[in-house]
């Protein structure tokens, strides 16, 4: 009886939701062209970014990007809070299979020399690539978020690969970079208010030979913010230092 009811409910939910969204998705209405044409003609001159996507998300609609950065910040903060609690409870329990160098134990069967060698050699290369994606976001596909995630994975590689803890895998250092870049992001966003170019307006628009300067600045800040915060979370998940 309970099972039948469950199945009936499930069918009802799927049916209604499908009926509600299919007409929206399968609409035959012609695609809107106003924004596309506007971007085609003006995006480069407005923002200086060759990559139109970055002119949208760091130019015209930068507030949305700030919102998404906040979502990331809050969810990582929340995750760290839960992780710290779990760590406090399970202090005596077996360490997780991937453990950091200072905590290396005999039980860590999955942490082999092969992993260490590959990860430590890959780390710097990936890091460089991450910064490339981050810095060239205004020209080619990429940008702060993507570059940041690549930087984070590079830091995870380094954390897995090196015996001794380096500055780059130290959660305290990463946390400092994270908080500073968040502060700079907020200041960059609000400074327009005091420079007569409005909230999230470009305060350094004039007087620079590099036309996409504001977008590059935002890409770097967001990249550092995303990279360090995700790296801190990954290191904490691997059972690394709980300096948070």
């Amino acid at each position: 009886m309970k099972r039948t009811l469950f199945i009936i409910k499930l069918i009802f939910i799927l049916l209604i939701l499908a009926l509600a969204i299919f007409p929206v998705i399968l609409s035959s209405h012609s695609w809107p062209v106003v924004s596309r044409d506007y971007l085609y003609e003006n995006a480069l001159s407005d923002t200086g970014a060759v990559n139109t996507v970055s002119s949208i998300y760091l130019g015209y609609r930068a507030m949305d990007t700030l919102g998404e950065t906040l979502v990331l910040l809050v969810s990582i903060t929340g995750t760290m809070g839960i992780l710290i609690n779990l760590g406090r409870e399970n202090e005596e329990e077996e360490a997780v299979s991937f453990s950091l160098a200072p905590e290396k134990r005999a039980t860590n069967a999955q942490r082999t020399h092969l992993l260490e060698v590959v990860a430590s050699k890959l780390g710097p290369v990936v890091l460089l690539f991450g910064f490339y994606v981050m810095l060239y976001g205004h020209i080619s596909p990429g940008g702060g978020f993507q570059g940041g995630v690549i930087v984070a994975s590079a830091i995870v590689f380094l954390a897995l690969g090196t015996e001794t803890q380096t500055k780059l895998t130290n959660t305290n250092v990463l946390g400092r970079i994270e908080s500073l870049s968040f502060l700079v992001l907020i200041i960059a966003a609000t400074s327009g208010v005091f420079f007569e170019s409005g909230f999230f307006g470009n305060p350094i628009k004039s007087g620079s030979s590099l036309s996409a300067n504001f977008i590059i600045l935002l890409n770097i800040i967001i990249g550092l913010k995303v990279g360090t915060s995700i790296a801190v979370m990954c290191i904490a998940m691997m059972g690394g230092r709980r300096g948070h």
Binding site: S179, I186, I187, A189, V193
Partner: peptide, 26 residues
Amino acid sequence: IESLFLSPVYLPMLGAALILVTKHFF
């Protein structure tokens, strides 16, 4: 007037950033 009515949006964010920075540095 814009900077006045937008202040409940950007001032709390500024405050949050300040706390995060002091948490890591002080």
